[in-house]
Structure formats: C-alpha cells, structure tokens
Design a protein around this nucleic acid. Structure first.
Lengths: 252, 252
DNA sequence: CGAACACTTGACAGCCCTCAACGTGAGTGG
DNA sequence: CCACTCACGTTGAGGGCTGTCAAGTGTTCG
C-alpha cells in the first residue's frame, strides 16, 4: 500500500481519533455525552465502561456482520470506516451509509432482532461493542443513557430521510462532501482535506447515481475550481460554493 | 352531486379502528404490545394509561404541530390520517410520510427537542398524546415500554430508507399501494378496496414524482387491469402483480 | 352560476443511465 | 526490473424515463 505519500502525505490520523481507556470514553464517541450528564452515578458509569467490549481490528473487506445475523449488540466505530449495505434480488448493491469514528452502527437492527443489512470494513476498523440487552437494562438505571439512546435513534430517522429527496447529481454529491467534511471536522480532522475511504462505486450506490455520473460531477467540480481531487484524495477549495449547492439537501 | 356513492359505498370506517377507553388501549395502537408484555406491573400499567391524553378532533387542513414548535409529546393516531412534511427554501413541499390509525408521530423530534417537520390532518383526526418526558421516566420502570419505544424508533429508521432507492415510478407507486393496503389490513380494513385520503400532489411529493406522473401511472395500472381507480377511491384487482412490482422496493 | 381547485392528458426537453472503450495504478510472477 | 493482469476509474455516444410546460376537463364551494 504505502503510496500517494507525495501528493498527499498519508495521515492514518483521520481513521483514528483519540483513544479511550478503561475509565474514559473516546472523547469523540457518540456515547461521550453520557459522561457529561450531571448527577451521574459513579458506580453506574463504571458499569457502562465495563460493558464496553473492544473488538477488532477488522481489515478492509472483512464483514462485521451480515444481513440476517442475530442482533445482539450495537457498536461505536473507534477507528476506520464502516459501510452498511444491502443487496437486492437483482444483485444491485444499495449503500445505506458510511460510519466514521464516533458513530454508531446497528441501531436499525433493534426492531427485528436480526441485522437488516451487511456491514463491511473499508479500511482497518476498531469497534467498541455494547451488548444491547445489557445496555438497555443499564438505561433503566441511567436516565442520561436512555435519553442518549433515544436521541441517537431519533437522529438516524431524520438522517435517512435527507438523501431521499429528488435532488440533482450535483446537489447529492455536494451534500455528501459537506457531510463528510463536517463529520470529520467534528472529530478533529481537517474539514477541507481528507481521503475518501470508499470507492466511486460505493459513493454512487450511496447517492443512487451511476459511477460514471460520480466521476463526471467530480471532474466538473474540479474544472469549476470547487475542489481538487486526486484518486481517493480530496481537497475542498471553495467550501462556500459546495455548501451552497448542498444547502437545499441539508435543509439550510 | 353526491356521486360515487354507488360504485363505492362510503366507509368512514377506515379512518377509525376500535376505540380504547381509560383502562384499555386501542387494540391496533402501536403501544398495545406493551400491554401484552408478561409480568407487567399492574400499577405501572395504569400509570401509562393515565399518561394518555386524548386530543382532537382536528379537521382536514388543521395542523397538529409545525416545524420548529417545541417538542414535548409523541402521539399515536387514533383516527384519521396525518401527513408530515417539510417545505424547502424553494417552496417545494416534501412529504415525509402518511400516518394511519395506530401509528406514532413525533419520534423524529426527540433528538432536536423541536419538531423537524409539519404535521397536518388530511381528514378528521383523533390523537392519543403521550408527554415524552413523562413516558421516558415511566420507561425506566417499565422495561417492556422502553423496549417498545426502542423498537418503534428503530423501525422508522428502516422505513425511511426504503423509498430512498432509485426505483422507477411504477415501482414506487406499487410499493405505496401495497404498503397502504397492508397497513390498512393490519388494522382490520379491506386490503383491496380503500379510499385515498391524500391528494395526488401529496402522493407525488411523497414518492418524489411529478403529479402528472402519478396520474399517468395510475391510468396505466388501470388499463393493465391491476386496479380500478375513481377519484380518491381505489380497488386493487391484481394484488399479486402489484406486489411483484413493489417487491424490490420492499425487499422481498 | 362562476371561480378556484384537483386532476388529467399531450408535447417536448433535459438529466442521467446504459453501453462501450480506454486509461491508470497496484499487485504478481518471471 | 519488467511484463502482465485485473480492478478501478474516466470519457464518450446514445437513448429512455420522467419532469416541465401548457391546455383542457371535471368537481366543489361560495
């Protein structure tokens, strides 16, 4: 692998934020807000930490779970990128989402008790796994935890509805880039320069476009000076303009 | 000119399932499963019933809440149909969903503490309202209730992802009709003959199609003998064929 | 009865998908 | 070190689905 060192000095950084330990959560984890809740019972908080099971590493292409597997745990991405997807009967792949460090996977499995999709590592992935039955029990004692779980679930409902609109290819791509940029920035990485961990085909299947369209839109964005793209490396040159394109999609 | 009464005897029935009382939930309500949980604490169950606030009726066109309103309660539809939607900055309406009796609205508001969308009654609507802070507290004492809330939230994530695919107009319309048919059937109404409570424009905005396309697809379905449609009245003649069209969308 | 609205129908165009070919880089084996 | 292979990505040509525009019909309501 060790390539691209010239144009873009490789930063494994953007695949791993700060790391937690036995007593502290990773600060970027979606669960970290639980720790900030006031009046948190020390003993209960320890219980939550004990519940965490660090798993991995998974290597690129390895599956974390597959559609139909019995659901037992949700997981926070600690490092790397996870792609969730389904395959329809015609063999077409539909990408449901990309999950960066600090984000939660498995929330859509709670209802059916089986994972409704596949999850695959796009690069080297580390997870913090939480047994769902156990965390649910704990949530009855920790209102702050229950509240956080409700919020995480509620947030995903709205997120899923965003890309459902009938937006143009340009708008979709812009929204994708802006979303990625912001999520990376929220975790301490550069919002203007980052590496795409997913293939063009993955982006296309996520945005419901043809791979060729993804290619063409990126080329046009580059011609218009909005960004610079070299293989998987992206530098956003005019975030204002890109955000303006994405605005209607993101409801801003 | 009171017409159509002949071809389709009017049934207000499909807007109201069985009605609950102070001690029993409506059997079709999404919360009814809570009652079936084993080992349910009688006193706690009563607490849940006390928490219910019957509100309404709302008349067609009346808003239940608007985008930005402070979020305080989720609600189960007891009678009628509710449309949730947002207006983008260009003035275009995006319909997020239609909610039939027994279904829950407001779950996507938990995260932001403000309703992220508008909700309007399409006909005469009755609601069972549950204060969210109160029901969350109660859920810490009723594991079955907490579990049901988690499941309802999780289910909506998957539901939102369904129509996000790049399906044809025929597939979208078929999936819409099949979904409506099944949801009505689950509540005791005819799965093959029902009344559309929403305008063509609403269906179009929900399916991300032009109203003209909705019209054309319905006409073609009728020509092909799949269904019979007369204004807002629909009779599904070949549910097999329609379901086959909808299958890839519904992942079957 | 008139007006507003919902819905339908037709003509046309545009966006994006499909199909096809080519270019490029990474890994492999000689 | 080089040729080969394969996956990924890019680029071009053409066509189909569906949106847009426009006009017409039917219904409801004042």
């Amino acid at each position: 692998m060790a390539v691209n060192q010239v144009a873009f000095p490789r930063t494994d950084a953007h695949t791993l934020a700060d790391d937690g330990d036995a007593l502290h959560f990773c600060s970027t984890c979606a669960f970290s807000q639980v720790c900030l809740a006031e009046g948190m019972d020390k003993a209960a908080l320890t219980d939550l930490h004990v519940l965490v099971e660090h798993v991995g590493p998974f290597h690129a292409g390895e599956h974390l779970f597959r559609e139909g597997d019995p659901f037992e745990a949700i997981a926070a991405v600690r490092a790397g990128t996870v792609k969730t997807y389904v395959i329809d009967r015609e063999g077409r792949e539909h990408v449901l989402g990309f999950h960066l460090p600090g984000e939660i996977i498995g929330l859509n499995a709670i209802d059916s008790e089986h994972y409704p999709c596949n999850a695959v590592a796009l690069d080297t992935v580390m997870l913090c796994r939480f047994s769902f039955p156990k965390i649910a029990v704990l949530a009855t004692r920790l209102p702050g935890l229950q509240r956080q779980l409700f919020r995480l679930l509620s947030r995903d409902i709205g997120r899923a509805a965003l890309l459902a609109g009938d937006w143009s290819a340009d708008q979709r791509m812009a929204a994708f880039l802006v979303g990625l940029s912001r999520r990376l920035a929220a975790r301490g990485f550069s919002p203007s320069r980052f590496q795409l961990t997913m293939a063009r085909t993955d982006i296309a299947n996520y945005l419901r476009l043809a791979p060729e369209t993804v290619s063409r839109v990126l080329r046009r964005f580059q011609q218009d000076g909005l960004l610079r793209v070299d293989r998987r490396e992206v530098e956003l040159l005019d975030r204002e303009a890109i955000a303006a394109l994405a605005a209607p999609v993101l409801r801003e």
